[in-house]
Structure formats: C-alpha cells, structure tokens
Design a protein around this nucleic acid. Sequence first.
DNA 1: CGAATAGTGTCTTTTAGACACTATCGG
DNA 2: CCGATAGTGTCTAAAAGACACTATTCG
Lengths: 245, 245
Amino acid sequence: MGYKPKGSMQQTEKQFIENYDIHQYDVPLTMVDMAIFSIIDNKLNVLLVERNIFPEKGKLALPGGFIDKNKDSDLEATALRKLKQKTGVKLSYLEQVESVGNATRDPRGWSVTILYFALIDSAKLNKKLMSRSYWHPVDEVKHIALAFDHNLLVQKAVARLRSKTLYTALPMALLPEKFTLTELQTIFEIILSRKLPVKSFRRRMMDAGVVEATNESKISGKRKARLYKSTGIKKDFYFPRPLQA
Amino acid sequence: MGYKPKGSMQQTEKQFIENYDIHQYDVPLTMVDMAIFSIIDNKLNVLLVERNIFPEKGKLALPGGFIDKNKDSDLEATALRKLKQKTGVKLSYLEQVESVGNATRDPRGWSVTILYFALIDSAKLNKKLMSRSYWHPVDEVKHIALAFDHNLLVQKAVARLRSKTLYTALPMALLPEKFTLTELQTIFEIILSRKLPVKSFRRRMMDAGVVEATNESKISGKRKARLYKSTGIKKDFYFPRPLQA
DNA sequence: CGAATAGTGTCTTTTAGACACTATCGG
DNA sequence: CCGATAGTGTCTAAAAGACACTATTCG
C-alpha cells in the first residue's frame, strides 16, 4: 500500500491550526454522566444528585457534567473528576457504557453524553457523601422522574452490569477485599434478581480461578465460612459459558 | 420515594435556557467516525477516505465528521449522513462501538469521537464509491499511518467485530440474502483468521435457528450447495456458548 | 441434639470439538 | 470412476443445572 500524502498545499497545516476557532462552529454540548452502583441493605443502589442549577434544577440526576478542557486529559479523567467533586468516594471499577446524543435530550440544545458505569466496594461506603447526593435502590428509580434522559441512562447502565454479571466475575468489585462465597453469590443474586444454584456458583468461581481461598474464616451466621479474595484475574476475563439468562 | 423538586427559584428555567449561550463555554470538538467493513477477495476490508482538508490533509482516515445540529436528529443520524455523503452505499448493520476523547488526538484541540462500526453486504459492493474512498484489507491498515488516532479506532472496531463473531451470527450481514453455509463459514473464518470445524459450525447455525434452508441450491464448486437465508432472528441473539477463542 | 448455614458428590443436560464417514456432481 | 466439494454420524469433553447429601457451629 505505497500510500503517501500528496503535496501542493496552499496553506500549511500549522497555519490552519493557528487560525482554527471552534467558536465559529455550531457544536453540540458534550458531557460525561456516571451511573455509580453499590449494594446497600441487600439492594442494588445507584447514586443520584439533586441538581441545584438550571436546567432541571431540583430534579435528581446522575452525577456528571461538562468536560473541562484544562483539567481533564481524557474522558475518563472527566468522569473521575466529577465523581470526586460530587461524591468524594473511591471507585473499584469504571467502564464506559455508551454515548447518547440527540437534539432533544437537553433543553440547552443538541447534546451528547458519554455514559460511564462504576462500582463501589461496600466497605468504602462508611464515608459520608457530599451534600445532595443520595443512594437510591435501582428498582425504585423507575418511579422517579430523573432529570434529562437519565432514567434511560440508568437503564442502560444496569443492563450492562447485568450482562457483565452473567459473563464475568465483575461483581467482586462490590465487595471488600475478603469475602465469603455465600456473600459473593448473594451479590450476584441481587444484581440478577434471581436465585442461583449453590454448587454451580461455587464450582464456577473456583474452577475458573477467579477467587482464591485465604486461611481466614468469618462467622456471621451459624457456621464459620471461609474467606476468599480475588485473584486479580484480568478485568477482561470471561467465563467459558454465561450463567443461564 | 416521595421526591419532588424544591421551589423558590430566582430565575425561571425558561429564562435560563433563553440566555444560555454555548459559545461562552470552552467546549470540546465532538464528531462521529465509522469503521465500515466488507469482505473483498476473501479478506476483511475497511473503508478509508483520503482527507482533502486540514488537518491531516492527504492522509487516510475513517469516514466521519462533525455533528450537524440542524441536519442530524441524533448520533446515528450523523453516522448515516456521513456514510451517504462519503460513500453512497447502503448498510446492513450499524452499531456504536465506543467514544474516545482526549486533549491530544486532534491538533485542533480537545476532541471526542463517537465510533461506529458498520457492515456492508458484499452484493451491494458493485456500486462505485465516491472519489477518494478506498477499501483496505484490515491486516494492511496497521502498516499505514492513518490520520489522528484512527489506527486505534480501527483496532477497536475490529476487536468488536471479532467478539461479536464469537458470540453471534452477525457476519451474516456481510453476505447477500441467500448464501450457502460454506460461504457463511468462510466469512467467519476470515474474520477470526482461523479454520472452524465444519460439523460444529453447521450444527450451531441450524440448531439455534439463525438460518433457514431455502429450496434453492447453488453450484459454485464441484457439487451443488443448498442456499440458506437468515431467519431474521433479533439482532441481540447470543449463542449459548461462544466459539472457542 | 436440633436448627441453620456452609459446603460437597454425582448424575444429567447442553453444546462444542474431533474425526471418520457418506453424498453429489463434473469431467 | 476419480477428485473435489457438501454434508452427516457419533463419540468425547467441558461446564452448567438438579438435588440429595455431609459438615460445622451455636444454643
């Protein structure tokens, strides 16, 4: 493919860049929103923030906001900055879900949001949230009119989390470093809203080597249960077969 | 959750929106790029366009460009408009891959691109392309310095196509309406760069009901082969187990 | 010991891979 | 009938589900 750029330029590229002014173009708004999940009281919860500025002032919304060209080196940096600014919590997992952009989702005009989803380990939940931030069970969010199209965004993020739960061991990120297999299974069951067979679940986790036994035990119910920890298997590990949908 | 917005607004939302001027903000560039794939000469090809404007003038790039707030109702509309404008071909499949945004990918400044990937049925390839559009085998693209970070974008799109090929029957979209199972298998093998076991492949497609036999046959080699067509199973069908990676 | 929770043994089911086999067609 | 391509029969292997079973601890 002996391809090479052609010559004969009227203007140099350098000149072009210097004269380039984004403000002469009619650009869309571009922002980042985050669906941050945690398990509270045996329910999957998502973090919502009460908006205190227009538009949609007073409504609940996903944490998020505009890209700051000076502060953010990339989209993930925007997500992390917004997270810190609005919640002060530390993440266990962050992944881009998808982007939604159209003419009608924001009254300020054509806008694009890049949606991220994040998981927080329940051990870190002691820290208090910033003001106007509240955890809401995702099952109840559908009955609240969120700002903009954020009900849809929550749905998309939950769908991604469920899908990953069928194929991977990602929900470990919702637990502290050491956990029992029963605790892990419970988290899976909460996310999927159904019971899983005990034997299958344990075999799946052990055989794939995503968890490793520690020497410690923990007693929460009647009998001691062994504590396990993640083997730190790489984030992109997929089980050979999904859990049955 | 008896949540409801609080009152006592200094300014009305309507006033806020009317006074809102995006140009007072330092916003990033936002655009859509597309990785359009087709099979040519038993190779997976991607469509590239020679840029005839700054920046990166003369280099090859994925088809794409800025959102037009007046013409496009949503991101997919931008993708389809760019496609038509630059190639004039009709798509079999379109899906968002992911968004990439950072301060350095475009010399004009902080920019975000929403990447789509598309498949074109080889029967539609007779139509001639717009000028300066060329099909390139994806294996060779890694040796060409594309504009911006488009080498990376091609890689991401190819990875998505390969992943979908392991889990779904998506590659049917690269074939005309009627095809033999051998032809379909060949397409899979091209995308995955490896041979697949014949018996497994046919059983997988038939048992899942993603293809349906027609009464017609086709003779291309030594023996007639039955023609099949897609059962139009929904786009989000996943086989119970992936092909072995 | 009984109740409750943790954890296992083992059979079946599903679906992929291996691979030898049969079928059909042109020359 | 030979060679090549299309297509099948059937065994094995991997991993999930079903479900009865055993193990440990507290009171």
